[in-house]
Amino acid sequence: MTALCAQESIYNLLPRVEEKPIKLPSFSCFSHLRYLRMLTLKNYLLLYTSYKDVHMLNSTGKRDEGRKRLLTIPSVPHLTDHPLMGIQSKKNFINTNAADVIMGVAKKPQPICVDTRQGNKYLLETSGLVPKYINKKDYGLTPKYVIKRNEEGLKKNWEEVHHEFQGLSVEIDTLPKKINKERLESQMKQLEHDINIIEKHKIIYIANKKFDKIHLENPKNVALYQYVQEVPMIEAAVHMNQLICTVSDVKRGSPLRVVKKILNAVLVVGFLNDCVLHTWAAAGLTWSGGLQGERLAIPTAVPSF
């Protein structure tokens, strides 16, 4: 019974008003032709221009405006208006078509791929063998909306905590109140800190896992050892490809430059293994992120590399 009752709603008691959908003139091929046939030449020209307008607008994505304009156009042809009849073209289509083909530029063959000895072939473009997507401009970048959302999310959190903090009573006389206040303060501080980090650095790399060694000779390893940060808000900003891309770009250069590039572009947040740090330290590099000492433990002993 409860399942049945759950379907009921008070709003169903409101008397229903049936809405008739407004029907727009459709431009399917057939109805369009029939529509045109009804019109005189004058109206036809008028309509034709507006029709062109619509299609041009369609391509730019402003479809609604075009529809609105079109709605005002068609007027019923007058009784005395007669459409022009019996107009024939004198163009020799056979000859002109033949001439077009002969004179025209030859079509390029479509690149195909054959992978078996039976000769099964398929289009190369859709096969995935052609590097298409990694050549895109925004390939590997953190999408802008993700960054924006993360910032906003943190700010919202901060506002909530701040609101709660503002609502505290003036007198902090009991232990629970004190603890509550301290908790809020530390939360706010943490959030402010996080917001600062995100706003300061364009790219944030978050490693995924503890790892023992980093081989600069094979920088792809860096990407393989991503790790999930414990702060969930920042987690969404992980974009491993950024690093692969960066590294592979300078693969042909010296190992030192690789590291430099990484450190200029990438900020390391969270826990990283001692070895990594040491590797960088050994290479004589300094931090650019400003996080040193806060989040990362600086190794005391120099491990073997």
Partner: peptide, 9 residues
């Protein structure tokens, strides 16, 4: 009560 039929929920 249910709002349409007025049955006791």
């Amino acid at each position: 009560f249910t709002p349409e039929t007025g049955r006791l929920m």
